[in-house]
Amino acid sequence: MTDLATPSKVTFAEPPSSPDRRVRRTGTAARRVRSAVTSALKHAGLVLFGFVMLYPLLWMLASSIKPNALIFREPGLIPSDVDLSNYTDGWSALLHPFSRYLINSAIVVLGCVLGNLVSCSLAAYAFARLRFRGRNFWFAIMLMTIMLPIHVIIVPQYVMFSRLEWINTFLPLIVPKLLATDAFFIFLMVQFFRGIPRELDEAARIDGAGHVRIYWQIMMPLALPALATTAIFTFIWAWNDFFSQLIFLTKPDMYTVPIALRTFVDSTGESSWGALFAMSIVSLIPVFLVFLFGQKYLVKGIATTGIK
């Protein structure tokens, strides 16, 4: 609807007509031109801004196709020498082909996404829609759990998971998500659930629906943007999470992408920067695709479902 070509086409197609009609038509055309210009400006702005946002990625892409030695000597955007060996070398540089780390990361990430979607939405429903004793207290406790830096929690956690013999499995990374320990998402969904008009569940209650049905048949579909947000964020954060994966996974065949990427760089000796950039690009692709395709669900909320 903001097609740049439309106004001129309309003008050309115009048959000769009476003066007063023409005035009106010109008025419309002017408005169209104006809106086209605004739209073009807006796009220009967005593109320019997009370039600023994209620069780092372009730079990383450029660096990933430079020979290792040129990355620092010629830091500009246009490579003087193109060399794809960073990709082939990087793929097989570590003990396993890089696909192994991608698969491991995918397993962890899918487990986390599923866990967070189910467990956090259940907890959020209780906080947003149910009345029970100590609700304020538990809500405060919930927020408190995300206020301690991970660095002091990780050692006790390691000890605990070590006792359970969960070290070097994906369990310490996935099970906590199944048990709603990511309070961030509970809070997120509480805020969204509370934005859903209560008339809807009141109506359902009158029809005899219980909380389980309201949760499943009304809240979940209506909170699609919140669920999509949760899924996307969980995906990205788990995909990029270095610290806990480093600590809990000890054998190379269980390593995930972030750990694998770090092992290209050694501050005390030689680093394979080219391979690091190349594999970083490779590991960005799935995340970017998830975001690109997932983001349309962000906008399918109450606004686009049948209920109005």
Binding site: A123, F132, I141, L178, A180, I186
Partner: peptide, 21 residues
């Protein structure tokens, strides 16, 4: 109902989060 909906969260709180905290 709240206990039911919060069961996973309570389990996570007491079994996973509370100990290390």
């Amino acid at each position: 109902m709240a206990a039911l909906f919060l069961a996973p969260w309570f389990a996570g709180l007491f079994l996973i989060t509370a100990g290390p905290m």
